[in-house]
């Protein structure tokens, strides 16, 4: 893990590099968090692709995990978390972005990181985050005609009729 100082240096570097590239839009790094020996960069959602590419140039070449999280009832409500790993220095850094529930949209990183394919589809399926530019933006674990996003905090638990052949026309999955 980078220590607190190195995290600030990385954030500085990103601010300098990205800030000069797009002088009008300001810094891509909103916040740095150092918690339990783990470093997290909270970045602006619009700049996630550029930030991940910069971090890859710094050596964080392996996208270990991509997952979603729901901060309900706080806003911006949804979060997408990218766990990056530098296999040579054995160093991890977490990149996090927050999305408002009104516009849960972010650029897909699948073109640059093929491993994100299934994981972005899972986040889309479970949290309703749309990944712009994903090659196959469909549900992955739930049926394609499922309504709602089960891992959102306000999604009700239980009470869903079980789908059998005999009641297929009456339950979820029927056309209105």
């Amino acid at each position: 893990m980078p220590d607190a100082t190195e995290l600030e240096l990385i954030a500085q570097e990103l601010r300098a590099a990205e800030g000069s590239a797009q002088a009008s839009s300001g810094s891509p790094v909103l916040e740095t968090v150092f918690f339990r020996g783990r470093a997290t960069l909270v970045v602006e959602s619009e700049r996630i692709g550029a930030v991940l590419v910069r971090l890859r140039e710094r050596g964080y070449g392996f996208l270990a995990s991509l997952h979603g999280v729901d901060y309900y009832p706080h806003e911006p409500r949804l979060g997408v978390i990218y766990e990056l790993l530098d296999m040579h220095k054995v160093d991890r850094i977490t990149v996090k972005l927050r999305l408002a529930s009104a516009t849960p949209e972010v650029d897909s990183v699948t073109p640059q990181w093929p491993t994100a394919d299934h994981q972005e589809r899972e986040v889309h399926d479970m949290f309703g985050v749309s990944f712009r530019g994903h090659p196959n933006p469909r549900r992955i674990l739930m049926p394609e005609d499922y309504e709602g996003h089960p891992l959102r905090r306000d999604f009700p638990v239980g009470g869903e009729p079980v789908l059998f052949t005999y009641n297929e026309g009456e339950t979820r999955g029927s056309a209105p």
Binding site: F35, R38, A64, S65, I81, R92, T94
Partner: peptide, 20 residues
Amino acid sequence: PGEVYYPIESPRGELGCYVR
């Protein structure tokens, strides 16, 4: 309160658990 991602080596590769 907090968030942690903890990876270990499972028989199939990196098994990471994220807990918030």
